[in-house]
Design a protein around this nucleic acid. Structure first.
Lengths: 330, 330
DNA sequence: GTGAAAGCGCTAACAA
DNA sequence: TTGTTAGCGCTTTCAC
């Protein structure tokens, strides 16, 4: 019984011919001693760590937690372990980047960013390690990416309001990736046009990317002469801020103003009123991202993929209702 | 210029005497080639990976995001990189555990758990790797831990209500670590007793650990014959559910019922009404946990530490107000 | 069916 | 001041 045989027995090498008794003795001893092959030695020899990184902007952003969950599932299924890192730290701290990425402490990296601050990382990394952008389109042919149907989400959100009889529907834009922001804005615009309405420029207000920004934006809307009766927020955190602004101004939601956000999140149902949202398949986004990463690792060309199933979906809760004064009851 | 010299120059070894010109040539070449020492080889040689793991239960729980932020900061400051993992996966999936922990892919691990499901991991791990429990007291002398002052937090929350004139103050318990739950319950009880009140057993209802649980618990309270005028929730997610239940029952918060939760979180201010909370120094908790882990790595005995500064603090928002019918205005 | 040995990329100790 | 080398723990190839 030699070290070689032990190694092969433990990794369940099918090509190893060995006496059954010997194999059992090996397995038994390993269990007994609680033996696990040393990660560093293994990685060095195999030039593969079995780890895949997911760099996220703001780990605790409730809107994106499903992405993490999905990636987790897919990674484990594929025999990998997922480790999360702070995307901003990675982009900012040269040393962290070296230690984790440039040194190949991981086999590949998923990037869930919110702006282009990580573009330099990407450029540096893509030659070394497979990289996949999650929820943003890759500007770089060496980097894969997956997105969801942002246009459709905003379209659905707007249509939901239109069906409730609203005509003056404002839109609170998001400060994140420009392309993503543009796609969502486009969804609102197209829905308005399809309904024969004119998407007024003054109904478009920058909602930032947080509740704080949403509140400011809604305050601006409220002070508008001809105030809209409904608002689509480019994400649900913005929507939350918008609700707060309404409440502060003494406006009833949904009786006087209807609000809908993009992305469902755990506490949306527990707000007062519950927030109507459009949900997107973020869990599947995370899963798919891992699969693409693994494909790249096997030498496939990086691709961009738009996830269209499961489709975006309106989850109606209390924050949207019929347009006041409208006879258009559904 | 030999490999040895290069290695030492790149790691800024002070004991290396070398011609300035040579050093610059090395550094220049490294930058040019974008060279980073291979992580696996380095780890193997130095038997240290420079990575510290933080296993969290539910990454996206907004109540605990500050712990992650604090740990992140402290890790980087100490020259380490923090990687997050799902605590439940780690506890459940034997293979993931081996690959990450038993194989020493990381130098130590921080555990932020919510029950005792990870106890078996801890036992297995502590002999191999430094382990520190975050926000829960270690049951094991080989494992360090840090907690915050749960008793004080609940005491403050209750006193806040008492000062507003409330006499009948219910308590929604939490389903998490028993010791933590007990300490918070004790804080409520002591505050009541200190105020000369009797902490009625029927005012204690299990709120689970989520908004869903909080809602159920509050429904139970509402159907109580002599309904309390105020509620302390053992965490803010529970409080959120309690608010929802009040709203569903047509009860005004805070006019008819006051609600306070433990732990501040980003969207608490954006609720309707804003949620009054008691904040605890979670960021510092994360920082301290990393420091203790590093201390253990250097051979110090694992210790348990209770963080009492910065002190817990009431952040009054809209969900608490004077007791209806009370003349006890502050 | 089993054992021996090379070598992954690096650091640290030692030799020159 | 600079160069050489052993060896970290593992997997895999090759010889037996």
């Amino acid at each position: 019984m030699s070290v070689g045989a032990v190694s092969r027995a433990l990794s369940a090498d099918k090509t190893l011919s060995i006496r059954e008794e010997t194999r059992e003795r090996i397995l038994g001893a390993a269990k007994m001693l609680n033996y696990s092959p040393n990660h560093a030695a293994r990685s060095l020899r195999m030039s593969s760590t079995g780890l895949i990184g997911l760099a996220v902007h703001d780990v605790s952003n409730p809107l994106y937690s499903d992405i993490v969950a999905g990636a987790q599932t897919a990674a484990i299924e594929a025999g990998y372990v997922l480790t999360l890192t702070d995307a901003d730290v990675l982009a900012t701290d040269e040393e962290v980047f070296r230690r984790l990425v440039a040194s190949k402490a991981i086999d590949g990296i998923l990037l869930q960013t919110v702006d282009n601050s990580a573009d330099s990382i990407i450029a540096k990394t893509a030659k070394t390690l497979p990289v996949v952008m999650v929820n943003a389109e890759s500007p770089n042919p060496e980097v894969g990416s997956v997105t969801v149907d942002d246009h459709q989400a905003a379209l659905l959100a707007t249509n939901h309001l239109l069906e409730l009889g609203h005509r003056k529907v404002a839109y609170l834009t998001i400060d994140e990736h420009e392309d993503r922001a543009a796609r969502r804005l486009g969804g609102w615009r197209d829905a308005m046009i399809d309904a024969g309405l004119v998407p007024q420029a003054r109904w478009i207000v920058n909602g930032g990317h947080s509740s704080e920004g949403g509140m400011r934006a809604m305050e601006a809307i409220i002070s508008t002469p001809e105030m809209p009766t409904a608002v689509v927020a480019a994400n649900s955190l913005i929507a939350l801020g918008a609700m707060k602004a309404c409440q502060a101004a003494g406006l009833q939601v949904p009786d006087q103003v209807s609000i809908v956000g993009i992305h469902d999140f755990p506490t949306a149902a527990y707000l007062n009123p519950g927030l109507t949202v459009v949900s997107l398949p973020l869990r599947q986004l995370g899963e798919r991202a891992v699969q693409l990463l693994l494909d790249q690792r096997e030498g496939k060309r990086p691709v961009h993929e738009k996830l269209s199933a499961p489709a975006a979906e309106v989850i109606a809760r209390g924050s949207t209702g019929p347009c006041p004064g409208s006879t258009h009851l559904r």
